[in-house]
Design a protein around this nucleic acid. Structure first.
Lengths: 253, 253
DNA sequence: CGGGATCTTGAGGATGCTCAACGCTAGTGG
DNA sequence: CCACTAGCGTTGAGCATCCTCAAGATCCCG
C-alpha cells in the first residue's frame, strides 16, 4: 500500500507512517542523497522548503560542458552524482585540470560574475542548479548558509594549496599515488569504501590534473601495478592493497 | 562653520579643521593606509570603531615566522606593509610557496581551526591582527563583512587556479615572466607603478613559488636580461620595458 | 565485426635538476 | 681598518626525469 492521501475509511494499520505532508514532496530535494554533504546541510526543514523553490536538477552527458571560462556566471551548482572536471586552458591549448568534483561538491565560484574556469562532465552527471541572483537573496536571509559557503570555499582553498605542492614539488610517482589517495579519501567521506575505488577519468585527464603527459601517467600506473602497490580491475576500478604504503610513496619514502 | 560642538567663544581661526572627535583616534586604524584594499573597506565609520577595538598591530622582522602549519588558528591578519610568503613543507623538507602577500592582503584562512600552511615575513612586515573568536562575533553582526570575506576567498581561489596552471603546464621562462607580470599587476592595484617593480624575495623563494630550483630561476633571469626583456636594478628592482612582450612570453608566444 | 578512441610500450631527446665552484655583499670581530 | 665568514646569486658540466614522437594493443560502441 502506498502512503498517498486516503479516505477516512482507511484501515488503522495505515495510520502509523502518516507524518504531516512533506513540504519538499515533488521537489528534487526530497530524495536528495547528498544533503548532508552539501551546502544545504545547515538548513532547517522550513529553510529547505524555500531553497527547494529555486532549485532545478540538470543531467549532463559525459564530455558535455557545464560552464565555460569567461562566461557570465548565472548559476551555481551542487554535484549530486557523477564526476566533473574543472580546468583552465592556455591560448595554445595546453590544459590544466584544477580539480575533480564528486557528489556533494560545489561548483560555480566566480569573480566579478565571470566564471574563472571551465567545467565539463567526466561521466553521466547529476547537478542541482541555483540561479545565482536568487541564491544571493537566500544567502542574505540565511547567514548560516553564507558561513557554510565560506567554509566550503576555505576548504577548496586548502585543497588548492595541497595541489600546488603536488604540482610544484612532487615526482610523477608521488603525484599518481597522491591522486589515488585523495580519490580514496574523498570516497570514504561520501560513505564509500576507501579501497576498491572508481577512477572514472581518462589517463589524459589525470595527466592534465597532475601536470604530466598521458604516457607518463600510463607508465606510472604500470609500474605501480608491477610492484604490487595497486591492482587495476575492470571498469576503471583500482584496488589499493596497502593504503599506508601508498601514503609513504605519495610523500617520497 | 564646522559641525562640531564648540563653545561660542572659541576663536574662529580654529573652527575649520575641527570635526567631531575621531573615534578611531589612538587606534591603529586611524592611519591605516590600506583600508580601501582590505577587509575593512565595506565598513561604515561606526562599524570601523567596533573593529578597531579588537585589532592590534604587529611588526615582524624578515625571516620571522607569522603562523605555522598545524597550529591552532587563533588569529587572522591583514597585511598593511611588507611582503609575506605562504608555504607548505613536505616531510623531507621540500617546500612549495603557495603565495606572496602584500599590503591589503588577508591571511589566516584555516580549516577546523588549524592553519593549513605556514607564513613567514619576507622583509619587514606590518600586520593588523584580529583574534579569530572576536572577529567571528563581528562577522555575525556585519553580514556585509562576511560577504566581503567570501569575496576575498573567491579571489584567492581564482588566483590559486591560475597558479596551478602555471605550475603544471608552463615552462621555466613562462613561469618567471608570469611571476613578474603578477607582481606588476598587484603593484598597480596598490596604486604603484606597473613597471619598475620591487622584487623583495630571494631566488630560492621564487623557485619554491614557481616549482623551480634557484639555479633555474637565476639562469632564466639572466636570459631575460640578456634578451632585453627586463633590466635588473639596484635593491631587487626590476624594470619591464615592454609589458606586452612579457605578457606574450608568459603565454608562450 | 569494424573503426575510432583510449591505453600501453618503446626509443630518443630536451628541459630542468644536481653538484660544484666562484663572485659579491654585508656583517663581524680582531 | 681590514681580514674573515656566511649568505646569496651566478655560472658551468653532467645527468635524470619526463616529454615527444611513433607504433601497436585494447576497448568500446555502433
Amino acid at each position: 500500500m502506498s502512503s498517498s492521501k486516503q479516505d477516512a475509511a482507511a484501515p488503522l494499520i495505515n495510520a502509523a507512517p502518516q507524518p504531516k505532508p512533506d513540504p519538499l514532496a515533488g521537489t528534487p530535494c526530497a530524495a536528495c542523497s547528498v544533503r548532508d554533504l552539501s551546502l544545504c546541510n545547515v538548513l532547517r526543514e522550513d529553510e529547505m522548503e524555500i531553497l527547494s523553490q529555486i532549485v532545478t536538477t540538470v543531467d549532463v552527458a559525459p564530455r558535455e560542458p557545464i560552464i565555460d571560462e569567461g562566461e557570465v556566471a548565472g548559476s551555481l551548482f551542487n554535484v549530486t552524482g557523477g564526476a566533473v572536471k574543472l580546468y583552465k586552458l592556455m591560448p595554445d591549448g595546453r590544459r590544466q585540470i584544477t580539480g575533480f568534483l564528486f557528489a556533494g561538491d560545489f561548483l560555480g565560484i566566480a569573480l566579478n560574475d565571470i566564471y574563472a574556469y571551465s567545467a565539463e562532465a567526466v561521466n553521466q552527471v547529476k547537478l542541482c542548479r541555483f540561479p545565482s541572483t536568487k541564491l544571493e537573496d537566500l544567502l542574505s536571509q540565511f547567514p548560516h548558509m553564507e558561513k557554510r559557503l565560506l567554509g566550503m570555499a576555505s576548504n577548496e582553498l586548502v585543497q588548492a594549496q595541497e595541489h600546488m605542492l603536488l604540482l610544484g614539488r612532487k615526482s610523477a610517482k608521488e603525484k599518481v599515488c597522491s591522486f589515488l589517495l585523495s580519490l580514496s579519501r574523498r570516497a570514504e567521506k561520501r560513505g564509500e569504501q576507501p579501497s576498491p575505488i572508481s577512477v572514472p577519468m581518462s589517463r589524459a585527464d589525470i595527466g592534465d590534473y597532475l601536470g604530466l603527459t598521458t604516457e607518463t601517467v600510463s607508465r606510472t600506473f604500470t609500474n605501480l601495478k608491477r610492484d604490487g602497490f595497486i591492482r587495476l580491475l575492470e571498469g576503471g576500478i583500482v584496488d589499493i592493497p596497502d593504503m599506508e604504503k601508498l601514503e609513504e610513496l605519495a610523500d617520497g619514502f
